[in-house]
């Protein structure tokens, strides 16, 4: 699938009435990202540590011949990840602006189609999550899915400035 089609789809997704998201767990929270960013969801791979890299970089791994970095987004989001790696631990590899990067999540729940009109903007402050990277909240019956602004979350240059 060419990037153009992907973008077109993404556009349609945004303009349409529904949004398809992948939901995943990190600590106690449930997050969601637009499904069209996702390239692959895999089990925790063998990760090679990259010395002298920023602390949020866990390392790099081999995704079928491609070298892909893996980052830890919990620091940024201000949430705690489960300490141990289980069968449920996954790496979600996304492609944002042509850059491939993976991040570790505690569990991937499911693909959801949610109606746009249930999405509300994030409050100025949230108890457990840094709202800077939150695009909106989707309230489903008993769940609250935090929709992430992935490009902003992964734009790591701005991070190094604030540090």
């Amino acid at each position: 699938m060419g990037t153009e089609t992907a973008e077109a789809l993404q556009q349609r997704n945004i303009n349409g009435d529904t949004l398809q998201i992948t939901a995943f767990r990190l600590g106690k929270e449930e997050f969601g990202i637009d499904i069209l960013y996702i390239r692959e969801i895999i089990r925790m791979p063998v990760i090679t540590r990259v010395p002298n890299a920023p602390s949020y970089v866990l390392g790099i791994f081999n995704m079928r011949g491609k070298v892909v970095p893996v980052v830890d987004i919990t620091q940024r989001l201000g949430v705690a990840r489960r300490d141990e790696i289980t069968d449920e631990t996954k790496v979600i590899v996304v492609q944002v602006n042509n850059v491939l990067v993976g991040f570790v999540v505690d569990a991937v729940s499911e693909v959801q189609r949610i109606a746009k009109d249930i999405i509300v903007p994030p409050p100025a402050l949230m108890e457990n999550v840094n709202t800077k990277y939150v695009e909106g909240l989707a309230k489903l019956e008993e769940r609250l899915i935090i929709l992430l602004d992935l490009p902003k979350l992964l734009d790591l240059e701005s991070e190094s400035e604030t540090e």
């Binding site: 063998v46 990259v50 010395p51 890299a53 070298v67 892909v68 970095p69």
Partner: peptide, 27 residues
Amino acid sequence: IKSLGDFLKQIPGIAGSTILGDGRVIL
């Protein structure tokens, strides 16, 4: 030789990476 990709860009002391026969990535 494989680059470390756009995400990591330059890492001091590391020129790139490669994938070994067993699939491991080394620097």
